[in-house]
Design a protein around this nucleic acid. Structure first.
Length: 284
DNA sequence: TATAATGTTAGACT
DNA sequence: AAGTCTAACATTAT
């Protein structure tokens, strides 16, 4: 669900409420997530984003890393400490108030997979599809090898990497090993804004086109951050609020509709198993 | 009932 | 060997 702007939104909000706070305990509700009891009693020192990863730096040299993948969400549940009744991987919410005999106050949301409990409230990981990951490891200071899409992207650098690549430029933009942070919505929007056909082999883009792609990446992503993300289905921020960037979408999920730039028709194709929306009339 | 959904990755191919 | 493609992961909504 979340791409760079959504993760950045969560990162900023988490920073304001978690920095300096003590972790009381961790509840793993979905057993596929790794146990992390060693975090109890430690404090949050910082919250960072790296591409689509959220990193919570914790005292004693540990980092908890969360990736929300397709359906993961994070919520801040203010106030009282929730108590677990029964925890199982198929939790749809009611398990927490059911046969365990302990009523959860306030009620834990459906599809809760992980709780990180603080004195002031609880951070809840919600994830219907259970693709999200949660890992704890020693904090490392290795500089990131991959350029963040909002970390000073260089057109020259991208062109250099793309020089030997035949894969479609849309797949190139979404490859997290090449650029960190861009997903399906923003890849479509960036290429539309740059006027570049998503099917073009990466190596064929001219320097002028790469500059345009980089410029539009920054513009599109920064606006999306300012809008606190794109809510087309279920994205919500830490406090349950929708973003507003969906009001700025030009092509994503607009199959058959009129192109806002040239009046042509928006088409949908499939690339790498993902939907791609674009205007064949004005993206070349 | 079939398809698609804001993501990544292991394994198969080339 | 490195680049590219597909299926798989798990679940819901249309």
């Amino acid at each position: 669900m979340p791409e760079l702007p959504e993760v950045e939104t969560l990162c900023r909000q988490l920073k304001t409420i978690l920095t300096g706070e003590e972790i009381l305990r961790i509840e793993i509700i979905d057993s596929r997530l790794e146990k992390a009891e060693e975090l109890a009693g430690r404090r949050v020192e910082a919250v960072k984003r790296r591409g689509k990863f959220l990193q919570i730096l914790i005292s004693g040299g540990l980092t908890a890393e969360i990736h929300l993948r397709m359906s993961g969400r994070l919520f801040w549940q203010k106030g009282g400490v929730p108590r677990l009744g029964q925890a199982d991987a198929s939790n749809k919410g009611e398990a927490l108030t059911g046969s365990g005999g302990i009523t959860t106050i306030p009620p834990v949301l459906a599809y809760s997979r992980l709780l990180i409990v603080f004195p002031a409230g609880t951070l809840v990981l919600i994830d219907p599809r259970r693709f999200a990951t949660f890992t704890v490891k020693a904090t490392e200071n290795t500089p990131t090898l991959v350029e963040d899409a909002l970390g000073g992207l260089s057109a020259r650098r991208l062109q250099e990497i793309a020089r030997t690549r035949r894969l479609p430029v849309k797949s190139f933009l979404m490859d997290q090993r090449l650029i960190a942070g861009i997903g399906n919505i923003y890849a479509c929007e960036i290429l539309f804004a740059a006027g570049v056909d998503p099917r073009r082999p990466s190596a064929d883009l001219t320097p002028v086109e790469w500059r345009k792609v980089v410029k539009m990446s920054v513009a599109i992503l920064e606006r999306a951050v300012a809008c606190r993300g794109t809510t087309v289905s279920d994205w919500r921020d830490l406090f349950g609020c929708s973003g507003t960037n969906q009001d700025h979408l030009a092509v994503y999920a607009r199959k058959g509709e009129i192109c806002l730039r040239c009046g042509g028709r928006i088409e949908r194709i499939v690339q790498g198993g993902r939907g791609t929306w674009f205007c064949p009339a004005c993206q070349h």
